[in-house]
Amino acid sequence: MGFTIAQGLVIVFLIASTMAGSIARPCGNSNNTQTSKRIVVGDSHHWTYGFNYSKWAIKHGPFYLNDTLVFKYDPPTPNTFPHNVYLLPNLESFIKCNFTNAQEVANETQGAGEGFKFVLERPWHPHYFACSVHEGSHCLNGTMKFLVIPI
């Protein structure tokens, strides 16, 4: 599946939103300290097929250093879709949903219960998340993937 203009616009908007949030937040002001947050990915939808996580990330940004993303999803059963969480290495892999050099950060069972926790520890480093299930179709449909750039 090729890169679409809509995908490009979503990525540009997400990066611009993140940058705007960091510019709006004064630096060095001891009265304005940022504490890390615990953020459930997808809110009450959790990490599930058919929900648009790029839109969710734009709505919830900016993300900050040491924020914890919590991926909650049911373990696989005959009645549910399995899910996992991969960290893709770069923007091209993210756009194309290419998992060749991606790192699995949570397998199909780790989202159960309290969920899998991922701490954003690299400032200004894009983190590209996606689900690789069903040969990447959960990512390829454009919904089960998102990026964050912690500030």
Rank of each mutant, 00 (worst) to 15 (best):
F51Q: 08
T68S: 10
N32D: 04
P62I: 09
V41Y: 01
L87P: 00
P62H: 04
G50V: 08
P82M: 09
G50F: 08
L88N: 05
A57S: 15
Y86Q: 06
Q34K: 12
H60I: 02
S54M: 12
I58C: 04
H46L: 00
P78I: 05
K59A: 12
K59V: 08
K72T: 07
I58P: 00
K55M: 05
D43K: 03
V85Q: 08
N79I: 06
L88I: 10
H60S: 09
V70P: 11
D43A: 13
I39E: 01
T48K: 08
P75A: 12
Y53K: 10
K37Y: 03
Y64L: 10
F51D: 03
D74Y: 09
F81E: 05
T48V: 15
P89W: 09
V41F: 05
S36E: 10
Q34C: 02
V41R: 00
D43S: 14
N79E: 14
H45S: 13
T48I: 15
S36N: 12
G50E: 09
Y73M: 08
Y64S: 11
D67P: 05
V70R: 09
T77W: 11
F51G: 00
V70M: 13
K55E: 06
Y53S: 02
Y64F: 10
Y73T: 07
P89V: 13
G61W: 05
G50Q: 10
S54K: 03
P78E: 11
L87A: 07
L87S: 05
T68K: 10
R38H: 09
T33F: 10
F81H: 15
V40C: 02
T48L: 03
V85R: 02
K72N: 12
F71I: 04
F51H: 09
D43V: 00
G61F: 02
P75R: 11
Y64Q: 15
H45A: 11
